[in-house]
Amino acid sequence: MATPHIAAEKGEIAPAVLMPGDPKRARRIAELLMPDARQVSDVRGIGAYTGTVDGKPLSVMASGMGMPSLGIYANELFRFYDVQRIIRVGTAGGLSPKVRVGDVVVALGAHTDSAMNTTRIPGIHFSAVASYPLVAAAVAAAGDSDRVHVAPVVSRDHFYGNPAEQIQKLADYGTLCVEMEAAGLYGVAAEHDREALAVLTISDHLLDSSQDMSAEDREHKFERALHLAVAAAHC
């Protein structure tokens, strides 16, 4: 049963889905994790791949950039393919001195400047938070690593032109990094009573650009985050 944006038949998507933003990264993750992976969808350049990891089914599918794009795919996966959990595996920009490039942030919650969640419950400021069992599984998989952090992030609608004065205030309130999808994912998961988590690799830093990853590095240096994401997917 294909949808307007996913060509897979029902049963071809696993109950757990890893969701990077980049279609190339989705293919690379599938090849890295699942020798038996097969492509089950390719609509608008967004491939979906299903296979097994340690005998357990898993799918990988890109979301594209931004909450509107992710919202389309997450809604269809939850509604039509009976997906139970989506784990975003993405990159983020550090905005606090508590993190450095290469660190991983398990996004406990996601502030946002987007209107995506404002109409969910009229009169209520919706809290976009991760699913605790997934957070716990990711943290357990991290062990005592000092390169993994559990904290709020901020999901932006705009990549460029964000107010510089907000960076320090966000950091003061414990926000470690900025990205563009987690708040939307957490909102869609709550709507469908499903589970979601974002595990983010710091690829650049707003306070110090000297160690920023190249575009090639962004596609390859996500092994630590991927390990945590798989642990959450199969907890």
Rank of each mutant, 00 (worst) to 15 (best):
S203L: 06
T201Y: 05
A115Q: 14
A171E: 02
A171Q: 02
L176K: 01
P68A: 13
A115E: 13
A182M: 04
P163V: 11
M213V: 03
V153P: 03
P133Y: 00
R224Q: 14
T91D: 01
V153C: 02
L77Q: 11
L32P: 00
I121Q: 09
Y186L: 11
L185G: 09
D208P: 03
D172M: 06
L18F: 05
A233P: 08
S209K: 03
A37L: 05
A107Y: 04
A229S: 03
P57Q: 11
A140V: 14
I167W: 02
A229P: 01
L33D: 12
T112C: 00
C177N: 13
V89G: 02
P133Q: 01
V43P: 05
M180E: 09
E223F: 05
M19T: 01
R147H: 12
A8F: 13
I29W: 03
A136D: 11
G94K: 07
I124D: 09
F80V: 06
A136R: 06
K24Q: 14
E179Q: 08
D36N: 15
I6F: 07
V199E: 15
R156P: 00
G66N: 00
A229W: 00
N162S: 10
N162L: 04
P152E: 01
I87L: 02
R44A: 09
V106A: 12
G102T: 13
A115K: 10
L32T: 14
